[in-house]
């Protein structure tokens, strides 16, 4: 151990630097695809959760509770190793021909995150005064239409800070995809470590990237809060 020599050059240039960079791209791609999908799915689940039709509401409620209260890692393993017995053979064959590791990670991250997003959207909607819905209904809008044009646009604006938070969580959670062989940032950092035995340098580089992304997003969120939300509230 005494002979440990720092060698920062391995992570600032050359082959191992390229590995870290490619890991960064995969992390961004994985997070971006998953957040887009989980926003859509979360929106659908939130609307179902507020539906007046009981079975739909119950289904959404069960979905929320189950996926929020199960570790993401277990969900990733389930989709990657376990899904072949529950998916129809056609879907399975198709997935196997794609980039299955990536797909399984996207599915798991999307389902997990959508459950949290749905709750955020729902509390956003609940903070919109009830009278607005009544007013919209009485002016002839259907339930779905009033949601679409009156309630959701406002709710979504209020929900943006918690949504960005979810995006941050998702970006950090995407590191778990390394367990099924997705070559994202964490995977590459470990690869560099196992090829060079320079764990300190490899982990420092990855940490720096994660923290930099987090700080950038947090900064943008503060800006949004100052420029958009505060004036809205003040009005």
């Amino acid at each position: 151990m005494l002979s440990y020599k720092f060698d920062w050059a391995i992570v600032t240039s050359g082959k191992y630097f390229d590995w870290i960079v490619s890991g960064f791209y995969v992390t961004i791609k994985l997070s971006a695809v998953s957040i887009a999908l989980s926003f859509m799915l979360g929106l659908i689940i939130a609307i179902m959760r507020m539906s007046h039709f009981r079975p739909v509401r119950w289904f959404a409620h069960g979905y929320l509770e189950f996926f929020r209260n199960t570790p993401l890692l277990v969900q990733i393993f389930f989709w990657y190793f376990g899904s072949y017995k529950v998916l129809p053979a056609v879907a399975n064959d198709w997935l196997v021909k794609q980039d299955f590791e990536f797909a399984a990670a996207v599915i798991a991250l999307t389902i997990y995150t959508s459950a949290f997003i749905a709750e955020d959207i729902r509390s956003g909607v609940r903070s919109i005064p009830k009278e607005q819905m009544e007013a919209a209904r009485s002016s002839g809008f259907s339930y779905l239409r009033s949601m679409q044009f009156i309630i959701l646009p406002q709710a979504v604006r209020l929900t943006i800070p918690p949504l960005i938070n979810q995006f941050l969580n998702l970006m950090k959670n995407s590191s778990l995809a390394m367990t099924i062989g997705v070559a994202e940032l964490m995977y590459q950092a470990r690869q560099v470590e196992s090829y060079t035995f320079k764990g300190f340098e490899a982990f420092s580089a990855a940490t720096l990237v994660y923290v930099a992304i987090s700080f950038t997003i947090t900064g943008l969120m503060t800006l949004y809060d100052k420029k958009v939300l505060q004036p809205l509230k003040g009005r």
Binding site: K172, N173, S175, L176, M178, M186, A189, R190, G199, F200, F203, A206, T207, Y210, V211, I213, S214, F215, T218
Partner: peptide, 18 residues
Amino acid sequence: IQTIRGMPLLMVIFWMFF
């Protein structure tokens, strides 16, 4: 606090192991 919150838990675990 902010630095730790900016890291994935997995990263914190690797650091501790290291």
